[in-house]
Design a protein around this nucleic acid. Structure first.
Length: 260
DNA sequence: ATGGTGGAAGATCCA
């Protein structure tokens, strides 16, 4: 079972590229972030034509996440638990039945947190705390389980081409990285880091200043596997070539293969 | 110090 995550930066602008990538990569489950669309306007037909079930959690203009799956999505839940006043659409979770049981997948779009002297950083850190509290409960289930998404966190200096340029940025602050490390320390496995220790492995290149051409990238899109999922991992990768397509997102898809 | 790019929306906000 192939599970992928991709921050598509606007479904309306990316629908053709998404369909091309789905045909090429054939993920069983795809988690999309930054759909920037309300649920009613999400273009489901071209995706359903490829055999996918679609569940969205959108909002007007910004944010928004979606799950696509070749098998039906069960127990769908929208919104990260822990703050009923949080109106930002950044989280969707569902379960999928497999030959060996179920796999649970959460698709998440973590807050950016910049500028760091604004409430946005507080929101980012509080959101990560809520995620960690929720993840503690999930890991106790001892199920194959994946948290996939745009974490907006550079875990380590080797995850940036120019780490010195990110000092002081919310994506690289010690507090942000600590929150991510606390999550991983519960027992999750970073899928990409379990197949390579290379620096030069990125998932995002800014549109500005020729970042892609200079390979000035960062690794901020992650697939965290519960121990039960990690035990069944057979491969992982980054579809970096998608960044060179026409009208690309600034992020590329990241995927993991699980023997489920 | 500014602008460099792009998406959604339709003036700015967000990244």
């Amino acid at each position: 079972m192939k599970i992928a995550t991709w921050n598509i930066n606007g479904i309306k602008a990316r629908i053709d590229g998404l369909v091309d990538w789905l045909k090429e990569a054939e993920p069983d489950i795809a988690c999309l972030q930054e759909i920037k669309s309300v649920d009613e306007n999400f273009p489901v037909s071209g995706i359903e034509d490829l055999g996918y079930h679609v569940e969205t959690h959108g909002q007007k203009g910004f944010n928004g996440v979606a799950l696509l799956s070749k098998t039906p999505l069960e127990d769908v839940s929208r919104g990260l638990p822990g703050d009923p006043d949080d109106e930002q659409a950044r989280f969707i979770e569902a379960a999928v039945s497999t030959k060996t049981g179920i796999v649970r997948v959460a698709g998440a779009y973590m807050p950016n947190g910049n500028p760091t002297d604004s409430p946005k950083l507080d929101y980012k850190l509080a959101w990560m705390e809520r995620l960690n509290t929720w993840a503690e409960g999930r890991i106790l289930l001892e199920e194959p389980f994946v948290i996939a998404g745009d974490y907006n966190i550079i875990p380590d200096p080797r995850d940036a081409r120019h780490p010195e340029n990110w000092v002081g940025d919310a994506l690289f602050l010690p507090r942000s990285r600590q929150a991510y490390r606390r999550l991983v320390s519960m027992g999750f496995v970073d899928a990409i880091r379990s197949v390579t220790q290379d620096s030069d492995v990125y998932t995002f290149w800014d549109y500005q200043a020729g970042a892609w051409q200079k390979n000035n990238g960062i690794r901020i899109d992650h697939l965290l596997l519960s121990p039960e999922a990690a035990d069944r991992m057979s491969g992982a990768g980054i579809d970096r070539h998608v960044r060179a397509w026409e009208k690309p997102s600034d992020h590329v898809p990241v995927w993991v293969d699980l023997a489920l």
